[in-house]
Design a protein around this nucleic acid. Structure first.
Lengths: 240, 240
DNA sequence: GTTGACTCTCACGTTACGTCATACTCTATA
DNA sequence: TATAGAGTATGACGTAACGTGAGAGTCAAC
């Protein structure tokens, strides 16, 4: 699908699609020889997600973070969206009540406190923002992963190499020399992209098993890898 | 109430209130010696209206036009708001359905067309915008009244004086010398604030009875005044 | 009489596009 | 096959609705 088709289908402007491309929020899967953007069905699904999060007040930057997050899960997102919509529908009910009361009070049939006048009208802090943050993390949790992304493809490949390496060792003793060398590479790697003391390193290891978002991603390289890394990281920190 | 109280009550920021003051959208009824803004209950009601229209996507400029419109009516506004909320609630239902279907299609239980994927997600053109325009007018219709507001209090008083004058004559012959002098004043007045040919003047008179927004406002000065003015204006235009 | 919470007015920054301007691409038809 | 008309691309500046300090005054309370 080309820009205008997408625009007509979804109700957003062509300029908006250009903008989303510019900021890397929705980059079309294909481009013609002439430079025309061509959107895939996958792109459309992503756009649907974007529009949804936008509708409920998320800034584009945060939406991008969510979608980019390695722990992001489309199905979970849809479920959260469902919850948000239901909540919003309930809020609308409150607003309608408020309006009804206001109408009656305007007719002098009753009086309202100022608080009552704004019941349902407070959109200030979206409780789901926290929920989304909790699910797909930000700041702290994915710090490492995000930094990796910043440092480009090579760094990413380095990281994967270390993960694969460790995954192969994951049924051996984490205190063994081989494992400790591998985990030492991990420590060195992390310090290339961030700043980790030995304590922080050990703490990070704890998070690998404590936080399922980490666990999931790490265990992609091998079942039980997260636990193995935690153990190896603790030993490494203690010994150095 | 002072800024922060209002902010806490309504969930908007202090800066927002400052902003609304700056652009003349919500000017506090009182100001202390020290220059502190003090909001009245009336101000709060207005703010409620503002927040509502903002929530449903009206730009502040348009909101200001609505509230400033002489034909604006709080009760009508609340009723429109009710309708909009009900419609939005219905739309939410559609969106929830869409999400449910999407979830099922993600699980491979069914397939969806692209159009179905965006059902309920198109917020592009707000149908109520037109509705609001129709009720409280814009551009053309209230041009005169708006210009009056621009020219300050004196002009406003001049206008009212002419209206009252005509209202007293409204049971006499619109072709009489007295009536024609009065309507001539009206013509002169209008040309002070705008640019009206004789034809335009007669046409305006037609609108006074054709458009109920005009009729309502004019008849506030006396029942049947709008019709009377239309007649007098036509005669005036024909004679000059 | 000095905090601490609140307020004021600049004034520049930001987000998410809108709105041209200018130029290329691609069918559809004369 | 030339050419119009609809669509698209890339700048680049404009706009709306505030956010975010900076610097300074205000005010009740201890």
């Amino acid at each position: 699908m080309r820009v205008k088709e997408v625009a007509d289908l979804t109700g957003v402007s062509v300029r908006t699609l250009h903008h989303y491309d510019e900021i890397g929020l929705l980059v079309p899967d294909n481009v013609t020889e002439a430079g025309y953007r061509v959107y895939s069905d996958e792109n459309l699904t992503t756009l649907q997600q974007i529009l949804f999060f936008r509708e409920v007040g998320f800034p584009l930057k945060k939406i991008k973070e969510l979608l980019d997050s390695p722990s992001f899960n489309r199905l979970e997102a849809f479920e959260l969206q469902r919850d948000m919509l239901m909540a919003k529908r309930k809020q609308l009910g409150t607003m309608i009540e408020t309006i009804d009361k206001t109408l009656r009070s305007e007719r002098g049939e009753m009086t309202m406190t100022n608080e009552e006048k704004f019941k349902g009208f407070d959109f200030s802090s979206n409780p789901y923002e926290q929920e989304a943050r909790d699910r797909w993390g930000d700041e702290e949790v994915d710090k490492a992963n995000k930094n990796v992304a910043k440092f480009g493809k090579e760094t990413q490949e380095d990281m994967n190499r270390i993960y694969y390496n460790l995954a192969e060792l994951r049924h051996t003793d984490p205190a063994s020399a081989e494992a400790q060398v591998a985990i030492g590479e991990w420590y060195t790697f992390l310090n290339k992209i961030g700043d980790y003391s030995l304590e922080a390193f050990a703490g990070l290891g704890e998070m690998y098993v404590a936080d399922e978002r980490f666990t999931k991603n790490i265990d992609k390289f091998g079942d039980g890898l997260a636990v193995y890394m935690r153990d190896a990281m603790k030993i490494f920190a203690d010994r150095n």
